[in-house]
Design a protein around this nucleic acid. Structure first.
Lengths: 224, 224
DNA sequence: AAATCATATAACAAACTTTTCAAAAATCAT
DNA sequence: ATGATTTTTGAAAAGTTTGTTATATGATTT
């Protein structure tokens, strides 16, 4: 579960944010000032820190600067919360190394979509380019397939065919559908071509991965 | 120079943004609608796309969705421009795969700090000067690469190619993407040029550093 | 149980991509 | 300008991928 550290001196706001993030499935940790935030960040290594700028004792900006100096927290995402039109603070926030800026008053939907987007684009949630089913992880961005943790090299056509089948595990793909999606519509290849590629994928990833539906096509097996 | 594609149907805004970004040292490309944006993105492979949501012909959201389906543009940063309180659009923007949301009316300072921050946290900016992966340290400021502690001289194109690949270790860069990001869009060089430069980098830093994905492109190896 | 039909498999051939090399062209520094 | 370095090109070699063929297997139908 992804951890988010929330820092604000107003308890109501802290609770409000924590409530909304928990509901979305995040684990929340709360701090009431900058110093506490630094301590908790060191202890918990959250994926994201949501921090108010204006706080007594130590401002969010200062806390951010300090956090950025701690090696293991250098790449922790930090988003600042600040009054809507406080342009000055926003600028300082970015200078201090903030990754995002969320306007107060906080609107739950906006907060969640920003937090999700921030984590997504930093690949913290891994949703973006990876498909994983059972023992297999397909990473399109890296162009690699992992089988039980080990990288396996697939040639391009094999990779594309696998991606197609894995894009909807359990669903049957008809032979002519496979042909047109992997080979294109104007390419003519023999009827045995698909089988041969399926065989190659099976020989690399195991026979159980892809199931033959006779007279119809193939499907990626759901369970393993 | 980092390329930014700006998309808006109002020419005044287009010019205004382009002016401010050029002043900051970015190369700007402009499009007046979603379709044009898609074409130009495919051609230029910008590091960032700044796009209005409300446009005739094709909305920014639609364009974003389409761009996200093009493999080599999947990880291109996209920031939406929208009227300050259009909460609905902002939500849709994030759903469509937008990375950032910048409120109109555009304030130059805010725009620049957001753009800088967005690029910085994605490692594509010129200001963070060092990248280190395994035995290799790349110092952009000094234009030097250290291999196991020893400085190695790379020629400029070799260096730029290495920086591109190393900016996202593990991720595949498609050949045409490499061409447009390292050589530019109006330069026509033969298809063997990339290979030869890859070879030179390998001969200086070892073969394992860069991995060939046949039929696709190259990537910087993650582990070492 | 034989005939038929669809897929599996292995070996081969064709097509394609990258590597390598050497040399030409362009650029840079003095 | 001159020589050194960098960049690009083209051709041939090496290496991979992809598609075909022929045969085997196995399931289904009659």
């Amino acid at each position: 579960m992804l951890k988010i550290l929330i820092v604000d001196d107003e308890i109501d706001i802290l609770d409000f944010i924590a409530y909304n993030l928990s509901k979305e499935g995040y684990e929340t940790i709360t701090a009431k000032n900058g110093n506490e935030a630094i301590d908790l960040a060191k202890k918990h290594h959250p994926e994201l820190i949501l921090m108010d700028i204006m706080m007594p004792e130590k401002t969010g900006i200062e806390a951010c600067e300090q956090i950025r100096k701690i090696p293991e927290l250098k790449s922790t995402l930090i988003a600042f919360l600040t009054a809507l039109d406080d342009e000055q603070s926003e600028l300082k926030g970015f200078e201090a190394g903030g990754d995002e800026y969320i306007a107060k008053p906080i609107k739950p939907k906006i907060l969640l979509s920003r937090v999700n987007a921030l984590l997504r684009r930093n690949n913290v949630d891994g949703k973006s380019t990876k498909i994983s089913i059972g023992d297999i992880v397909i990473d399109k961005e890296q162009y690699v397939v992992y089988y039980k943790g080990d990288p396996v090299d697939l040639a391009r056509k094999e990779f594309e065919l696998l991606i197609l089948l894995a894009s909807k595990p359990g669903r049957v793909f008809y032979r002519n559908e496979i042909l047109s999606r992997v080979w294109g519509d104007d390419v003519f290849v023999g009827d045995r071509t698909i089988d041969v590629h399926i065989r190659k994928i099976r020989s690399k990833l195991g026979d159980e991965i892809i199931r033959t539906i006779k007279g119809v096509g193939y499907k990626f097996e759901l369970l393993s």
